[in-house]
């Protein structure tokens, strides 16, 4: 990596940092000041604007893991391995966030922290799959083997999602029906101001994903660079 490209990517990441910060501030203002309180559920319903974007983000991140895993096995380039790793870490963090905000929302509304409902169950299983993925990465030493094994698990894990979905759905469910994309049409089940707030929040979280990805990828590449320099030092002396 030469000096020029480093500076350029630094500048880009600064723009992204500011953009993410500003959109997050707007989202927070929308959540706490602009959007009206929900009639039946009260103020606790505002957690939805964190809960749904986190869920969307974790699914998106796991999808990126799947794509990057396929590309890695196909092209065998270290680049794709780094992307898959970074995306899996971010996905697990936001999946944890979903599993934490869910019970906080559920306790006053449903009266219990946890129910064995289809979507809660499948999110929990998904979390377990990708925690196992990260554990596999932590257990193996850096190199081609780790990248290949992780890529296989990234593919196998993502293909499991439809099976998990249907099996736990037929098992039992009482989650609220999807409101944003419902059978009546896009966004019919929700007030416009709520939809707008949710949209802004989604934008903020998506920007945050790309920001974290960029940072994590840069970090991993620097790690590679340090390893290379260390090895050079070792052999030259």
């Amino acid at each position: 990596m030469n000096q020029e490209t480093t500076e350029e990517s630094n500048e880009e990441s600064y723009i992204l940092v500011w953009l993410t910060g500003i959109v997050f501030l707007v989202a927070m203002a929308a959540i706490f000041l602009f959007v009206p309180t929900e009639q039946t559920e009260g103020p606790v319903q505002r957690i939805m604007y964190i809960h749904i974007p986190s869920a969307w983000l974790s699914f998106f991140a796991f999808f990126i893991v799947f794509i990057c895993s396929i590309l890695f096995l196909w092209k065998k380039e270290r680049e794709w391995d780094i992307y898959a790793h970074a995306s899996a870490e971010i996905g697990v963090i936001f999946c944890s966030l979903v599993l934490i905000t869910g019970p906080i929302w559920a306790k006053p509304i449903w009266g219990t922290w946890w129910v064995w409902d289809a979507r809660l169950t499948s999110t929990l299983i998904l979390w377990l799959i990708y925690v196992a993925y990260l554990m596999l990465r932590a257990q193996t030493e850096a190199g081609s083997m780790r990248a290949r094994y992780a890529a296989v698990l990234g593919i196998v894990g993502f293909l499991n999602i439809p099976f998990i979905h249907f099996s736990v759905l037929w098992w039992r469910t009482f989650h609220p029906q999807p409101k944003v994309i419902s059978s009546e049409g896009f966004g019919k089940g929700m007030e416009t101001s709520m939809l707008v707030t949710l949209g802004i929040s989604l934008c903020a979280f998506t920007l945050l994903y790309f920001l974290l990805m960029g940072q994590r990828i840069r970090q991993e590449k620097l790690k590679d660079e340090i390893d290379r320099l260390k090895r050079e030092q070792l052999y030259s002396s």
Binding site: I125, L128, W171
Partner: peptide, 17 residues
């Protein structure tokens, strides 16, 4: 240790079925 940790979450659909 790793085999069950990797395998069991992926097997949940088939166990339920």
């Amino acid at each position: 240790i790793m085999l069950p940790i990797l395998l069991y979450p992926l097997l949940i659909p088939i166990i339920i079925g």
